[in-house]
Computed example of a mutant assay.
Amino acid sequence: MATHAAMPGRRTPRAHARPRRRTTLAWALPLVLGVIYGFYAAFIRRDGGPSTGGQVLLGLVSGAALAALCFALGRIQRSLPLALRAVAYGALTASAIGFLVSLTDTSVLRSAGLGLAVGAGVLVVTFYTLYSRET
């Protein structure tokens, strides 16, 4: 009876996976997006009047939150499957746009609807871009 011969294993030690270095762009892009987002959130809330401490605090907190979420998504995006990566980008964009629209004192349905519409568009474009680069 014939049996399969076992393939000889590698005798050389394998190189361990080195941790990825964080490039300047990996932290600079979320930081810039957070600053712009924070300024815009504070500007929307200002409504033409003088700036107050509450508006500045709103801008700082919302900008820091978006920067942290963008940085976290940038760190884990390579480990996500293609479709889930597109969903993550769409969800982040939808929540960011929905929050900005809610600052304009419109209805909840309008801010949720506009956030979902923009998020769906980002999802489709991101999925198409990632899928076309993969193949």
Rank of each mutant, 00 (worst) to 15 (best):
A117G: 03
R133M: 10
A86E: 03
R78Y: 05
S107H: 02
V122P: 05
A67I: 08
A15P: 10
G63W: 07
P13S: 12
G59D: 06
R85S: 11
Y89V: 09
W27R: 01
S132T: 14
A94F: 06
T12C: 08
G53H: 07
H16D: 12
L116S: 00
R10E: 11
V125T: 12
L80A: 06
R110L: 15
T93E: 01
A5D: 05
F127H: 10
G59C: 09
A6F: 14
R10Y: 15
T24Y: 13
A6H: 14
V125A: 15
L29A: 15
G119V: 00
T3H: 15
T129S: 11
L80G: 05
S132M: 09
T3K: 09
H4Q: 08
L60D: 07
A15F: 15
I44E: 03
R110P: 02
A28P: 03
G115W: 06
A68Y: 13
I36E: 05
C70R: 04
R78N: 10
T106S: 14
A26T: 08
A17H: 12
V32R: 02
G38P: 01
R22S: 15
P50G: 10
I97L: 13
A2M: 09
A65H: 03
R11S: 14
I44C: 03
S132V: 12
V61D: 00
P13V: 13
R20T: 10
T12A: 15
A17E: 09
G59M: 08
G113P: 02
A88Y: 02
G119L: 01
R18I: 11
G113L: 00
Y89N: 06
A91C: 08
A6Y: 13
G38Y: 01
V101W: 06
S62D: 03
A15M: 14
G74T: 07
S79Q: 10
G34V: 07
C70A: 15
E134K: 13
T93W: 11
S51L: 15
R14H: 14
A65L: 15
V87D: 04
V118N: 00
A88R: 03
R110H: 07
G9T: 07
A88T: 06
V124Q: 00
F43S: 11
S102E: 00
R22Q: 12
R85W: 10
V124M: 08
S102D: 03
S62C: 09
L92Q: 04
G34W: 06
V32Q: 02
G53T: 07
R45H: 10
V56T: 13
P81M: 02
G113Q: 02
V61Y: 07
L58T: 10
L25E: 07
P8K: 15
T52G: 14
R14V: 14
L66P: 04
A94W: 02
L103T: 06
L82F: 05
D47H: 11
I36Q: 03
L114F: 09
A96E: 02
V32P: 01
A2F: 14
M1N: 04
R20Q: 09
A91E: 04
A64Q: 08
S51I: 11
L84V: 12
R133L: 13
V56Q: 07
L82R: 13
L31S: 14
G98Q: 05
T23K: 05
A94P: 05
A91N: 04
M7T: 13
T12N: 13
F39R: 01
